[in-house]
């Protein structure tokens, strides 16, 4: 797409959107947000980038194929559930780490790792589909 305005704005816009998507992902535990929404925002960022800069350039920017990202995310989510097995709990039981410097920080946990896995799956799968549709004959 040869729109000067879009091409100028895209680097900043995409960077902001990616940052925002991670923010939404991480705050999801206590406020509206989470892996699904974050993932969708992240995917939109790449979609915009693809429209503005073209498919080849978007593939380069992503470095790895999108479906790999989805696979890694799925594996990540599943592995975060395995952790609890070592503590004698059932698969996918949340495990929490209360660091000594701030015992009230009730955040660092396998649950957040799981949410990151969700984020990666959504980003990977949707970007993969978008790329597939962008691919011209």
């Amino acid at each position: 797409m040869n729109s000067l305005i879009l091409r100028t704005a895209v680097p900043a816009l995409v960077g902001l959107m990616l940052l925002f998507s991670i923010y939404v992902l991480l705050r999801g535990h206590n406020e509206p947000g989470g892996g699904f929404i974050g993932g969708l925002i992240g995917a939109s960022a790449f979609a915009i980038y693809t429209i503005a800069e073209g498919l080849a350039s978007a593939r380069r920017a992503l470095i790895v194929p999108p479906i790999t990202i989805a696979g890694v995310g799925l594996l990540f989510a599943a592995l975060s559930g395995v952790v609890s097995l070592f503590f004698g709990d059932a698969f996918l039981t949340g495990q929490w780490w209360f660091p000594a410097f701030n015992p009230d920080l009730k955040y660092l946990s396998t649950v957040v790792l799981f949410d990151i896995g969700v984020y990666l799956v959504v980003v990977g799968a949707i970007v993969g589909i978008a790329f597939a549709l962008e691919e011209r004959e």
Partner: peptide
């Protein structure tokens, strides 16, 4: 929430 994402994919 999950239904939306799944139905979208």
């Amino acid at each position: 929430l999950t239904a939306i994402v799944i139905s979208f994919s």
